[in-house]
């Protein structure tokens, strides 16, 4: 509880800082006035239409990615499981790119989550079929590597084939996500889907605790494996699909956060879920603030920053896992 309270406080502080950072250099009092009561017209528009959706998306998407990482690590009993590493995010991006740039749905934003959810769902089902049964850490990761490189290559191909020459510039966005210039439309599009995903994952909490004792023990405790699998597959697909649809691929949050937070919990997979969600929100908000501050002109893609933090962490986990095996 104490852990959750301090994480909520951290997320709140970062959310407020995120609202105060931006190229328009509004003063703090103008920003607050713009957000709540009138203020100047420009400040109100900047706060409500540009910075608020950005901060909301940072919070919700960080939460979704942290939560997805925690539940996948518990369910697959694999410390390296994470939507980005195992290729779920890249497949979601590919799905979104295929449906959107082909113009199947006109130029409607609704095409994005539809494609991304299908992509994420396919990826999880393929991974479960290949890797879940024998539970080898390595098989899952290798299958994920294959999926992500295939999805990344196909994403680049589809964007290059678009008759619109500007489409190929958007490869960077899909491979290294960004929260730049999102609007309330994106929030309305993604938030309900992500909330549904959070709900499904929360329903699986008891089951993943039981699963930590092994599948047979879980069954004898009255846990339905098929129901648990459905909850987690659908929950993660909703979270990662909706998140990727509006911000592109943001990696490593679901990997780093559960590992950082697990030592602070009682190590039951279910008690990790909420803190991991909050931790993910804090990490993405912080990374997105840094992405706006680091370069004075323009801004970085936030996926670059999460990869800079996450990739060395991943390597360290691999080294540690090897040492434990020896």
């Amino acid at each position: 509880m104490k852990l959750c309270m301090s994480l909520i406080l951290l997320v709140f502080v970062l959310f407020v800082v995120s609202l105060l950072v931006g190229p328009a250099e509004l003063r703090v009092e103008d920003s607050i006035a713009g957000l709540f009561a009138g203020g100047s017209e420009a400040a109100a528009i900047i706060m409500r239409e540009i910075r608020l959706p950005r901060a909301l998306l940072g919070l919700a998407i960080g939460m979704s990615l942290g939560l997805s990482g925690a539940v996948l690590q518990g369910f697959l009993r694999n410390p390296l499981a994470e939507p980005g590493v195992i290729g779920v995010s890249s497949m979601a991006a590919l799905g979104a790119v295929l449906v959107f740039y082909s113009g199947l749905a006109g130029s409607s934003l609704y095409a994005l989550p539809a494609g991304a959810l299908i992509g994420a769902l396919l990826a999880i089902l393929v991974l479960l079929a290949i890797a879940a049964r024998q539970g080898s850490t390595l098989t899952l990761i290798l299958a994920g590597v294959a999926l992500s490189s295939l999805a990344g290559a196909l994403t680049a191909l589809v964007l290059n084939l678009s008759p619109n020459p500007f489409a190929s510039y958007e490869i960077i966005f899909w491979l290294l996500g960004s929260l730049k210039d999102r609007s309330m439309e994106h929030v309305a599009l993604a938030l309900p889907l992500m909330a549904a995903g959070w709900f499904l994952i929360a329903l699986s909490a008891r089951a993943i605790d039981a699963l930590s004792l092994g599948e047979e023990a879980a069954s004898s405790l009255g846990i339905s494996m098929s129901l648990t699998r459905f909850l987690i597959v659908a929950g993660v697909a909703l979270c990662v699909g909706a998140a990727t649809a509006v911000t592109g691929t943001i990696g490593f949050i679901g990997l780093v956060i559960p590992h950082l937070i697990r030592p602070l919990t009682n190590r039951m997979p279910s008690s990790l879920l909420l803190p991991a969600g909050l931790g993910g929100a804090a990490l993405l908000l912080a990374a997105d603030i840094a992405a706006r501050i680091v370069l004075p002109a323009g801004e970085l893609n936030v996926g670059v920053l999460t990869a800079l933090i996450g990739a060395p962490f991943f390597l360290w986990l691999v080294v540690r896992a090897r040492r434990e095996m020896l």
Partner: peptide, 13 residues
Amino acid sequence: APTLGEFVTRHPA
């Protein structure tokens, strides 16, 4: 042919 970049010029702000 749609692009995401176009949505910036059509941003609600």
